[in-house]
Write a protein that binds this DNA or RNA. Sequence first.
DNA 1: CGCCAGATTGAGGAATATCAAACAGAGTGG
DNA 2: CCACTCTGTTTGATATTCCTCAATCTGGCG
Lengths: 239, 239
Amino acid sequence: MNSEIASKRSDCLQCRMRDQSIFAGLNTEELCSLGMEVQDIEGRQGDVLYRMKEPARYAYTLRNGAVKLVSSLESGQDVIVRLLHHGDLLGFEGMQGEHHRHSAIVLAPSQLCRLDLAELQRLSERLPKVRAAILQRWQDALQKSEERIIELGAKRAEARLATFLLQWARRYPQLRSLPFPLTRTDIAAFLGLSTEHVSRIMADFKRKALIQEQGSQLEILKPKSLAHIAGLSEAHKPD
Amino acid sequence: MNSEIASKRSDCLQCRMRDQSIFAGLNTEELCSLGMEVQDIEGRQGDVLYRMKEPARYAYTLRNGAVKLVSSLESGQDVIVRLLHHGDLLGFEGMQGEHHRHSAIVLAPSQLCRLDLAELQRLSERLPKVRAAILQRWQDALQKSEERIIELGAKRAEARLATFLLQWARRYPQLRSLPFPLTRTDIAAFLGLSTEHVSRIMADFKRKALIQEQGSQLEILKPKSLAHIAGLSEAHKPD
DNA sequence: CGCCAGATTGAGGAATATCAAACAGAGTGG
DNA sequence: CCACTCTGTTTGATATTCCTCAATCTGGCG
């Protein structure tokens, strides 16, 4: 499970994600003066970066790959609260000194930066740019979160799944064939459905040639049709 | 609808909510030096404080009363994204220069403070305490929002409603009889259910003497039982 | 009184879950 | 290479939850 995760000291100056990170906008000098230990983490599928309710020690930037944030209920049910892609942040709830609200589990081979929260805290006091970047991410997370409330509250399974697939695709703009490391159970836990129901709808989408799967690669064949299903589902409004 | 809302210049020094507001922790001197126009707003039921997609000009602090944040879909469906009580903030999405993500509608007679976002922006740059307070609220909103995702994704109607009633009650700790200005349709729009279904479950709760209604006052008679229904609903896990 | 918005109730049907079984593919060990 | 196992998927049958539509009921209020 939580076997030793490969890690080494990271070189931020060379980082390809640098201008999309929370350190974007800092010049080389500032970046060097951070004095921050940034660990370079290699995550394999199934690795647990942190667990729900643990005191938060680190935050992470996902440079590459995919991670799910899972909340486990007493009933044993798991809910995927958020899905993270390259450029996303995780574990930052700890900045207010709280415990982790979810477990972070690696879905596909990932590269992450691990930041010490206490150091990051100090840093953000000192550098308005960093602070602003974090605030912006926070704001984004809230917006996404609220969009999901709307999805879950207002739309039906087909529409939710269609929306979800399109959103997933938007994270890989230039790719026709998308990495798609989710199981049906994952999708179900994200959309608030049963595994079987997800399976059925996916099968249906495939039959209608809206999407196509091979291995863990997904291809969206008819985004327009999917968007239509995702949108004002006329099943709801027959007129 | 958007008829003139009563407003006057507010006196922050006298405010009873002061130490729960984003200006908490500032001394009188600092508070005076804010140089901020704070309008004192009187909201009546049905008043629209702002509309979705409008450019955001003001943010508000709800001193007293209740407000709903509504997102309207193209399908005509309304979803209540958040319910606000005394002490809550609204309209702050505008701090990042965005448009309003929801419409804010007054549910019960309310008193609010209206803050100019641009001024607030400058202020939060200058005063770390204010900035930290806003950040904290943001964090809280995200947490609440994620809790709601879990509710909507994992729980069934009965459990959702039970949770909701208990949460509502928690906002009025010392009251046995709670102000409850929501219609069944409001509750439905909050929980992602139909009006009729909400009505049925409420009736059921009343029959079981878990709750009691008179006018727009609500009383929770058996919080334990409600908590039980809200929790690990044994209908899910028969064992 | 008559009117109206909201609440309730019932009946039927659609959406979704649950349970069970079969199926497919990727190791893994002989 | 083949059985074997494991995990994830698919499919079917059935049960449950929830929605929709229509009717009635209620309480305020002109």
